[in-house]
Design a protein around this nucleic acid. Structure first.
Length: 195
DNA sequence: GGAATGATGTACT
DNA sequence: GTACATCATTCCG
């Protein structure tokens, strides 16, 4: 694989900051997935922060295992896990190595390769292409073989917002689909999302 | 419209 | 065996 990490135009060093700082800042960035059959991607509109040992809802709460090991790597590492035996969900690890912080990418607004995403999903409805961590993983063609690799070296790329993001439109709410630590408003999404 | 349910890998009791 | 950072489908009102 490509061992070269952050080049001048491909610098992900800022991802070693805290997950709670980075999560809202990722809203509006474009996530792009390159593959032999084409390019797919979209604008990030919903994320959740998970915070290692302090966070009962985090996969890393009970320490390191074979599955969650990539979470313990340094920021910009990718942590992919299989959810409910079926779905492949994408996290961007943040913070310094060992802290096991990550940001779960929950939804995109589809922008690139809509046809290919619809084909991978087996559904054409644009609303259902990338709205949800499982859907998004399938639409982008994410596979567990990419687990533990780093942004920029694995076909995944993060592009800054093309137009400035209205930070006032980003709201924090409780995270979805968990039973513990539901009091922590660590889900960030765009206000005008409906949902 | 909403509730219930099946699919099924990994981790934990 | 049970719980899950889910989703599509099926049933019910």
């Amino acid at each position: 694989m490509n061992d070269r990490l952050d080049g001048p135009d491909n610098n992900y060093a800022w991802l070693t900051e805290d997950a709670l700082t980075i999560a809202p800042r990722l809203i509006g960035w474009e996530l792009v997935s390159h593959s032999p059959v084409g390019e797919t991607g979209g604008r990030i509109i919903e994320v959740e922060a998970y915070h290692g040992a302090e966070d009962p809802a985090s996969h890393a709460f009970r320490g390191q295992t074979a599955r969650n090991a990539p979470m313990f790597a340094a920021g910009s590492t990718i942590y992919l896990y299989r959810s409910y035996g079926i779905h492949t969900c994408l996290n961007i690890v943040t913070g310094p190595a060992g802290e096991a912080q990550a940001v779960l990418i929950r939804a995109l607004e589809p922008t690139i390769g809509l046809d290919l995403m619809a084909q991978r999903r087996g559904l054409a409805n644009p609303r259902l292409l990338t709205s949800g961590p499982g859907r998004l993983g399938q639409a982008l063609g994410l596979i567990l073989a990419m687990n533990g690799t780093r942004l920029g070296s694995n076909g995944l790329e993060l592009r800054p917002p093309s137009t400035p993001v209205n930070t006032a439109a980003i709201i924090a709410t409780p995270r979805i689909g968990i039973r513990v630590a539901v009091d922590r408003p660590w889900r960030f999404c765009l206000k005008d999302l409906g949902r």
